[in-house]
Design a protein around this nucleic acid. Structure first.
Lengths: 133, 133
DNA sequence: TGCATACATGCGATATCATGCATGTATGCA
DNA sequence: TGCATACATGCATGATATCGCATGTATGCA
């Protein structure tokens, strides 16, 4: 089940980081699930960084993970009143520098590389993969 | 005006503290304004602590302040889409230990001490006033 | 004009967090 | 069975947050 007694402040703490907001907002706006390499290629942040942020969001109860072989698909936990309202808040956040719009656009293009609706490739931006460049 | 360019993560950071959540939730549920001494007597936290948290919420754009002589009334900034949705999320947060319910009850009782709708007394819990006990 | 009072804040101690680098784990394919 | 790869994490570091204590500022009243 979801609730492992997550304190309210832990939920907001999970969103108190620009990268984590980008992750949640991306998944909220597209209503999609994504594996880590897709997030890396969309947000253009290092693999280890997003891995940790995704973990933080999972521990806060915002994300659920589904393992499929080597890939792990992350999606928003939905159906919980206060979480659903948080997503709504995120979706109407101002996007002054167009960062969120770019994330969504990059993500949509990355989704085109799926085969049969599943990710079959890894990180397409080599300098963001483990080990750096 | 309101917006002094508050970054999204600063809004969530402002709510990433249990005391600040209590403040915002109290004002959201009661749709009231409150001065600092009323908050002290309701939340039963030291004056200097709430003063700082209120300041943090103001800097994040969640609270506005109206000075009336020695008293300063704080209320939620409303009418901004993502803020209004955040308040809605706060209002449906679980209250496992009954903390929020107690805050609201204490606040309602404290409001009975107003004269003409205005606070005319100071902190009624001496050990929480400046200087400690 | 001086005092009581509503609220603000400088300081130091402690704790938590995000990041980069490097490396570890686990899964599937040849 | 070994290698490539998708993802995870230990460690050190710098940044930031909270708190208690004490004190400072500003307003109104006697």
């Amino acid at each position: 089940m979801h609730t492992v007694q997550v304190k309210p402040q832990e939920i907001f703490q999970a969103l108190a980081d620009p990268t984590r907001i980008r992750i949640v907002r991306l998944l909220a706006e597209t209503d999609e699930e994504a594996c880590l390499c897709e997030l890396v290629d969309s947000l253009l942040e290092p693999q280890y960084k997003l891995s940790r942020h995704v973990k933080a969001l999972r521990q806060a109860g915002l994300l659920s993970a589904a393992k499929e072989g080597r890939w792990i698909y992350h999606r928003l936990v939905e159906g919980i009143p206060y979480l659903d309202r948080l997503y709504e808040a995120l979706k109407v956040l101002p996007d002054v520098d167009g960062c969120f719009a770019r994330d969504v656009e990059s993500f949509r293009q990355r989704m085109c590389l799926r085969e049969g609706g599943r990710c079959r490739i890894g990180i397409q931006t080599p300098e963001l993969a483990a080990g750096g460049e």
